[in-house]
Design a protein around this nucleic acid. Structure first.
Lengths: 128, 128
DNA sequence: GCCATTGGTTACTTTTTAGTTACCACTATT
DNA sequence: AATAGTGGTAACTAAAAAGTAACCAATGGC
């Protein structure tokens, strides 16, 4: 009788973390906010290949998971600022390690610039 | 004239790491192999909700990215053992941090058992 | 001679995720 | 009076990922 679940606590919390941040855009959103709050439009400029719809969506999910604070100002034109919560700040050293690991494990690669392309992968622009 | 790429080295290596391990199954596969090599069937037993097709696929991608070593033995029935490469071993502390973060950030949750369900999210079995 | 076993593959369908385009509200500027 | 600027939303389409079921090859055991 096969089990239908994973019964390892470390594996489960790992799975949980990946459910929250383990996709194409979220780590980079968190990383970009690590130096302070930022407006929606600025995020969209710094991640030029994301669509507004998807950016909105990712920001909403991060907010729901308690990683982002959204502040909307009653101005015209509207201004909305996103910033990291304490939870998210606790994740920054881990994001740093993830990025360090890539530099370490793939020393032949040049990570100066990259393009996040359609199929969910990224392209280093120096590889063109 | 908007840029069409991300020109931050830390962001790019982060994106690269997430391209390699940032999905539903890969971190858990790596975690399960952290104590030594394991056969295909055992992985499939320990991750009961993954399909053979997807498991095969994930293992292939991890092998291509240099994280797994695949050893096939000429026996009948066939035996194939998967183990971590040095690259992947370097990732283990990071995986540990990712799992620690979840325990820390969501102390109210019980990560004893979980089920990875259809829509890409996980369910804690104690929440049923 | 038939069945079980392992580690897949193939073809097909379903689900999920992402992209596109058009639109809105409100004000300031030209 | 038209236009630009911001932070979205809605409806629709396309693409990617995942699931399902059937099949295979070779040997050992019954």
């Amino acid at each position: 009788m096969a089990r239908k679940y994973i019964d390892n606590p470390n594996a489960c919390s790992l799975v949980h973390t990946m459910n929250i941040i383990g996709n194409k855009w979220k780590p980079i959103i968190l990383y970009l906010l690590s130096n302070g709050s930022m407006r929606f439009g600025m995020l969209n400029t710094l991640i030029p290949t994301i669509s507004k719809k998807v950016l909105t969506n990712q920001l909403k999910e991060l907010e729901n998971d308690g990683l982002l604070l959204r502040q909307s100002f009653a101005e015209i034109p509207p201004r909305v600022e996103y910033s990291l919560t304490e939870k998210a700040v606790g994740l920054l050293p881990v994001l740093r390690m993830l990025s360090d690991w890539a530099n370490d494990a793939y020393p032949e690669m040049d990570f100066e610039q990259c393009r996040i392309v359609e199929n969910g992968k990224s392209q280093l622009t120096t590889q063109n």
